[in-house]
């Protein structure tokens, strides 16, 4: 659970997934839902996704064996819902809001700017593993549009220059720490 508080550690340590640990975690998660009449596969996958910040292939495989559900079913769930990722996330997660209100206030230009500055396409993680870029269809803070959610923090009323400052600051910070 330390992953979310220290995103930097998780990226490296979970690049290779520890198999015995996966079993432990999955047993815990499955145990949590054992009293339910129905099997909430989606909740289980959400918990695994929260734990690892993505869905490791091995974890899916373990769930499919333990719960006797086909791998193809889990895989179709994991690719259908946007909250799941099948590849590890970067240190920083950036979500650019593409809601209607943000769109009419120029969100597509913001997205383009982020894509260009960080050299990362929406839905992907940059090559150095630092940034994951996602688009999100409205986070419900339309008054602040256009806005991005940077590691869970809302940054609103963006302009191209403001986003450049924000990203620039983070670039420098990373260079200093690494």
């Amino acid at each position: 659970m330390g992953l979310r508080t220290n995103p930097k550690a998780c990226y490296r340590s979970y690049m290779k997934v520890d198999l015995t640990k996966i079993d432990q975690i999955i047993n815990q998660i499955i145990d949590k839902y054992k009293d339910d009449e129905d099997v909430p596969y989606i909740s289980i996958l959400q918990d695994i996704n929260d734990e690892y910040r993505y869905l490791p292939e091995e974890a899916l495989y373990r769930v499919s064996q333990k719960m006797e559900v086909s791998m193809s079913h889990l895989y179709s769930l994991a690719t259908f819902y946007k909250c799941f990722s099948l590849v590890p996330k970067g240190e920083h997660e950036i979500q650019v809001c593409m809601g209607t209100a943000c769109h009419v206030r120029g969100a597509s230009r913001i997205l383009e700017k982020v894509t260009r500055d960080l050299q990362v396409k929406p839905g992907k993680t940059s090559e150095n593993g630092k940034f994951s870029l996602e688009t999100v269809n409205c986070v419900g803070a339309c008054a602040q549009g256009p806005l991005v959610v940077f590691d869970g923090k809302y940054v609103g009323k963006l302009t191209l220059n403001k986003i450049e400052k924000m990203l620039g600051g983070n670039h420098e910070k990373d260079n200093k720490t690494s």
Partner: peptide
């Protein structure tokens, strides 16, 4: 057998085996 399923959604949907 349940070897194949629909993958992704919307315009990116396809039929595939897991991964």
């Amino acid at each position: 057998a349940k070897a194949i399923s629909f993958v992704n959604r919307g315009g990116r949907r396809l039929v595939s085996t897991p991964f």
